[in-house]
Nucleic acid binder design. Structure first.
Length: 211
DNA sequence: TGCCAGGCCCTCTTTAGGGCCTT
């Protein structure tokens, strides 16, 4: 679906995992994904999944996801096939996208699927758009921008929804603060890669191109 | 049980080091 004013379309995704590195054997234990379209969340997907390895006490405390909960969860391969169907051909957004893309790609490889969807990183974009924020952790940015939150942290769907609200806020701020219309997925993706000292020039030129 | 990474980005930089982010 093309991006038209008020119709930024992307899937915002978040994983809870057993650790930081799929290359060292870490696996996904929960995924949350929300579809943003027409400046709002229009669809959601969430599932726990059984990694078939025990998660550490740290992860149990960090996420609230216990080994007992995962024992009765569906296998990762089942969830990945459902996730693949939910994602479809949509663009993807994640907070620190390098992390989630590595896990997504690693789990997709196990179902013989290669991701072709492009990622944009809300953390890198927020660093450029909100350089004055105390830091650029997801929960800090949600509080800083006074975004909608149910108070749940480090659960996949809650984090995906917070990231989606952050993304929608960045779109509003780019529209109202810089006069950029429409704010496309491509613009957010490019903003995240612009050298910080050139952000102002990039946004000024983006505003001119939209006129 | 505790450990493991990788990319970005700044600076006391570029023949490097360390903090920030994600779980």
């Amino acid at each position: 679906m093309p991006n038209t004013p008020g119709n930024f379309t992307a899937i915002v995704i978040d994983f809870e995992t057993t650790g930081l590195s799929p290359g060292y054997g870490d696996r996904t234990i929960e995924v949350g994904a929300v579809l943003i379209s027409d400046n709002r969340i229009v669809d959601r997907y969430q599932s726990l999944m059984n990694p078939e390895i025990r998660v550490s006490g740290f992860i149990e405390n960090f996420t609230g996801i216990t080994n007992a909960m995962l024992a009765s969860a569906p296998p990762i391969i089942v969830v990945m096939n459902q996730l693949r169907a939910f994602i479809g051909n949509h663009h993807l957004v994640a907070h620190n996208a390098g992390f989630d893309s590595r896990f997504l790609d690693a789990e997709f490889r196990r179902i013989d699927h290669t991701r072709t969807n492009e990622f944009a990183c809300s953390m890198l974009a927020a660093r450029r758009l909100y350089p004055e924020a105390p830091n650029h952790r997801l929960d800090t940015l949600v509080a800083y921008k006074r975004l909608k939150s149910d108070g749940v942290h480090h659960r996949a769907l809650a984090d995906a929804e917070m990231t989606a609200h952050l993304c929608l806020q960045m779109i509003v701020d780019l529209e109202t603060g810089y006069g950029i219309r429409p704010v496309t997925f491509r613009l957010i993706q490019q903003l995240a890669k612009v050298p910080r000292k050139k952000v102002h020039d990039f946004l000024s030129k983006s505003a001119c191109r939209g006129k």
